[in-house]
Design a protein around this nucleic acid. Structure first.
Lengths: 243, 243
DNA sequence: GCCTGCATCTCGTCC
DNA sequence: GGACGAGGTGCAGGC
């Protein structure tokens, strides 16, 4: 059964050939296509995976993205990133969706045993963009406007200051003129963030050579126990700040 | 227009009330629902975001997941994780999908200006599970079976050995009886992996105290320049191995 | 293209 | 439920 209304095409339990035709045409036209049916999925590329028969929802976007979703989980069970090339073909009477890309070489194959649904959506003009707040960038802005959030007398001198180990979020001086490095995290942090801050501090100590003292401060809403202990053994500090 | 076939229900350009009824019933029944139409999206929780009017594809899974996709990108533009509670309601004549959860408190609201498509899919029995190869676990297995992949005389003693800084991937000895720590990465590594290995080595040195020498080896297909320099300054080593 | 680090990361696993 | 680290992480921003 086929239905067309308002630019959207719907097929119910189409034959493999019907589905193939609509899928191929939709991809050519730059439409967004969804399929639902029993299928297997094979992936080979950065890793390799196999997924046996089951009912899944497949989405092919005009930008070359492919997403295969099961009935649970936020992440697709298999996928292909934007920029891939799709091909719809019939193999031994069954619909197959092949998606490829190079750099890196990657291929995804969805083989349908049975197709219960195909929908083709025309996605018109580009739509509004997302605005997010509560990010690390917001924390940075607040600290630059309000340095005493870190401590009285803190004075920011640069953001994204480069060191041999990477760029420091905020670089500045305390009231004594001692160099201070801030590492900002928008959420509760573990040992990894302490390691990151430590890398920057050590790299800067080596870079400025001579026994220059450098204070490293982790700025986050909270820290785990292990992170707190690591901070202590490394002589690093912590300031609580919520984005 | 409504169509039912093989357990799948499709609505084309439904009224807000029609859509609300089918959406609510589908969620109650534990079906998977997709909608396509012009909508705005608001999120408030771990962060906050706003998304203006545009055409989007919305999926609500029976496990409580909600995904909002635009015509591009692999990641949903907005989402809600598994375990959320959905509610479909009419507000000022428009369909709204509200999704909530606690711990942490999070809410997502999708407001439809116009709905071009609703589909309800019955997802039957649980389906096959994904099997992946080429993971870090595979690397670990290969090294344990074939320790000379690291170097002649390397002898693994434990995996996931605990240190004050976290668990070490592989812990062992070299031909001299010196302690060796391996950190495995399935892909090209940057400074973060060096920091991780360094944390483990330092933690173990402190833990075993006395000037025990400990070798740290990063095992990965390749390293970036900066990572290589960090390895050198920390006295750490690198062995190339592809998963 | 590669490098680097953020993310409402998500996810599994172990405690 | 928290902690910790892997991931085919995705993604933006810089070079």
């Amino acid at each position: 059964m086929t239905a067309t209304e308002g630019g959207t095409i719907t097929l119910s339990e189409p034959s493999a050939e019907e589905a193939r035709d609509h899928l191929a045409r939709a991809i050519d036209r730059g439409a967004l296509v969804t399929l639902f049916g029993r299928c297997t999925v094979e992936y080979d590329g950065r890793a390799a995976s196999q997924l046996g028969l089951g009912e899944r929802h497949v989405m092919a976007k005009p930008d070359g993205t492919v997403l295969v979703h099961t009935d649970e989980g936020q992440k697709p069970v298999n996928w292909q990133p934007p920029g891939c090339t799709q091909e719809a073909r019939i193999e031994e009477g069954s619909l197959e969706l092949h998606s490829r890309r190079s750099t890196p070489e990657e291929e995804l194959i969805v083989r349908f045993e049975c197709i219960s649904h195909v929908a083709v959506f025309e996605t018109g003009e580009g739509s509004a963009t997302l605005s997010v707040s509560g990010t690390e960038a917001d924390m940075k802005g607040r600290i630059l406007e309000n340095p005493e959030l870190i401590e009285p007398g803190f004075h920011p001198l640069a953001t994204e200051r480069d060191t041999p180990a990477g760029a420091v979020d905020i670089y500045g001086e305390d009231s004594d003129g001692t160099v201070v490095i801030l590492e900002l995290k928008r959420r509760r942090v573990g040992p990894d963030a302490v390691g990151q801050l430590n890398r920057y501090v050590e790299a800067l100590e080596r870079d400025l050579h001579a026994g220059v003292e450098i204070r490293g401060i982790l700025v986050a809403p909270s820290v785990t126990d292990r992170a707190r202990r690591l901070l202590a053994t490394r002589g690093l500090e912590y300031v609580s700040l919520t984005p």
